[in-house]
Simulated scan of single mutants.
Amino acid sequence: MKQNTVTTGGPCWVEHGSADPAGAKRFYGELFGWEPETDERPEAGGYTFMKLAGAVAASITPLYGESQPTAWSVSFAVPDADASAARITEAGGSIVVAPMDALDFGRFAIAADPGGAVFGLWQAGRLTGAEVLNAPGALGWVELLTRDPEGAKAFYPAVFGWTVNPSEQYTQWGLDGDDFGGMLTMDDRFPPQVPPHWLPYFAVADVDVTAFRAGNLGADVLMAPTSVPSGPRIAVLRDPVGAAFGIYRADTEG
């Protein structure tokens, strides 16, 4: 990710909706050094900010509905959540949760692209988004896994103004040419029951060491550490609670 601060249209926040918030806090605390700070207000519903050296990096929350899976979600920064929600429907997407205020932190909405991948919109209030990006233990890349890559290439630029940087192997998303994420086409390697989704990647100092430590902490290694040709070293893991995420070496571009 070439954006080191929150940029309008770019990824700004990741949230772990968890069936076991306490277990998720322990796992990521040990893996990334995150420290929890729970909003104790009753109306916050147990929302917990996870801090990296004092800077807000992500959040962990309880599940808010019976149908909600344990998973990481990715949100993108917008100046007006209501206007962006309207653009989403105009571009062929759908609104899962209509724009609403999140206490004094900001305004958000949950949407799905035409292929079914769910993502969030975030209009900053007191919370702009992640206070640290790209550093070890912080969000460093986001990846769309989809069965409709051509539809995605039309949808996201229409909604967010993203640039598209395609190659034979991989398509990258950017803002004014500065890439922050990519897209992977879901083929026969993905079981039909796996839905399209956004996958966050966290920067780490050493992919192999972090993957090994994650395994010792109870995670599954979905993709062993691999060096991408002309790219970073990466791995994909599933935490003990069931949420998938990626890691990549912090001093390399995605």
Results as ranks from 00 to 15, higher is better:
Pro62Arg: 00
Asn165Arg: 13
Val221Asn: 13
Trp141Arg: 07
Ala109Val: 01
Gly129Val: 02
Asp188Glu: 13
Arg41Asp: 01
Leu145Tyr: 06
Thr89Glu: 05
Asp187Thr: 07
Phe32Gln: 01
Pro36Gly: 10
Gln193Phe: 09
Ala86Phe: 03
Leu103Thr: 08
Pro136Thr: 12
Gly137Thr: 06
Ile234Ala: 01
Leu199Lys: 09
Gly129Asp: 03
Gly120His: 12
Gln68Gly: 01
Ile95Leu: 04
Leu103Arg: 14
Gly161Tyr: 05
Thr128His: 07
Ala57Ser: 11
Lys51Glu: 04
Ala205Thr: 14
Trp141His: 01
Pro11Arg: 07
Ala57Phe: 03
Val132Asn: 14
Ile234Val: 15
Leu184Cys: 06
Met50Pro: 10
Gly137Leu: 09
Arg147His: 07
Ser73Leu: 00
Phe245Arg: 13
Gln123Thr: 05
Gly181Cys: 01
Asp20Lys: 00
Asp104Ile: 15
Trp122Ala: 07
Glu40Gln: 15
Glu30Asp: 10
Gly137Pro: 09
Ala85Pro: 12
Thr89Tyr: 00
Gly115Asp: 10
Trp198Ser: 01
Ala203Asp: 04
Pro21Leu: 13
Ala250Tyr: 10
Gly231Asn: 09
Ala57Asp: 11
Ala250Ser: 15
Asp220Glu: 15
Glu150Asp: 12
Ala130Pro: 12
Thr163Ser: 15
Leu63Met: 11
Thr70Leu: 02
Phe160Arg: 08
Ala57Arg: 04
Ala55Gln: 14
Ala205Lys: 09
Pro232Glu: 13
Glu43Met: 02
Arg147Ser: 03
Asp206Glu: 05
Lys153Gln: 15
Asn134Phe: 04
Val142Asn: 00
Ala154Asp: 15
Asp39Trp: 14
Leu31Asp: 03
Gly125Ile: 10
Ala214Phe: 05
Gln3Asp: 06
Arg233Lys: 15
Gly120Phe: 06
Trp72Tyr: 08
Ser18Asn: 00
Arg87Gln: 11
Pro191Asn: 11
Glu150Met: 09
Met183Glu: 15
